[in-house]
Amino acid sequence: MSANSADPALPAGGPATVEVVLVKAGRTKIRYPAALLADDGTRVSVRAPWAGEGVRDFGFVRFEPGDVFTEHYWRDRWYSVKEVRTSARTLKGHYCDVTRPAEVSAGRLVVEDLDLDLWVSADGTDVRRLDEDEFAASGLSATDPAAAAAAVAALDELDALARGAGLVTLLG
């Protein structure tokens, strides 16, 4: 759905803007404005340009100015899925963050990053689990074992979807 699509859940005249806030280890990691595309009460979808500073080269993908992220957050799932496209709308792939379920209120969407990530290339042939070392070093397993177990289960679920039916089954 484009930002100009007619959606009865969105205000007349186009999408509203929400502030996306990513928290990590109790501190705000990044915040940025995004166009609200949809909110069905469970899943919230937003679109925003790359909010990072300059280029971030992971070796297997580069996030850079001009890239557009269509981001999907759930209030009842421990992850978010971000479709990453170039400014020319060419799909680069999907970047998935393992997070606590999203909290949405008063024009803000807040998620807590739990370190685990998954990258899925545009053609689905490159599926990478990322930052498992950071997750282990975070100490979450000791301080909040239930959250740590939910995070690992979320990464496993995303990995299985990416290698099976594909992430589009979540986004359709």
Rank of each mutant, 00 (worst) to 15 (best):
D126L: 12
E83D: 11
V110D: 00
G14Q: 01
R75F: 05
L140E: 02
T143H: 04
L116S: 01
L170F: 08
L116P: 00
A165S: 11
A106M: 10
E134S: 03
R56H: 12
A149P: 11
A160K: 01
R47Y: 04
T42R: 12
V18H: 03
E64L: 14
A48F: 13
R77L: 13
L140S: 03
E71W: 14
L116F: 12
A136G: 05
H94Y: 15
S105V: 09
V61M: 06
L158D: 02
F63K: 11
L140M: 06
S45G: 12
G59Q: 10
K92P: 02
D39P: 08
Y32K: 00
P8I: 02
T42P: 07
E157P: 05
E103N: 02
L158R: 10
D7K: 15
V55A: 09
G52D: 13
L10W: 08
D40E: 11
A102D: 03
S105H: 12
F60Q: 14
W78P: 00
W74P: 00
A16E: 10
V81T: 08
L161N: 09
D7I: 13
P145Y: 02
D159S: 11
A106G: 09
N4D: 00
F135S: 01
P49N: 15
G26W: 07
P15V: 06
L161G: 04
K24G: 15
E83Y: 15
G52V: 04
A51F: 09
K82Y: 11
M1P: 14
G54M: 08
D117S: 03
P33I: 02
L140G: 01
R100S: 14
S45W: 04
V68A: 13
E103I: 12
V21C: 03
V120R: 15
E132C: 13
G93L: 03
S80G: 04
F63E: 02
E83K: 15
D113Y: 06
E134D: 13
D40M: 12
E157C: 10
G139N: 04
V55F: 07
F135H: 05
V44C: 05
G41F: 06
H94Q: 07
M1C: 09
M1E: 03
R89Q: 03
L114T: 04
V84S: 13
A88E: 06
L158E: 03
G13R: 09
L130E: 09
K24S: 15
G107T: 06
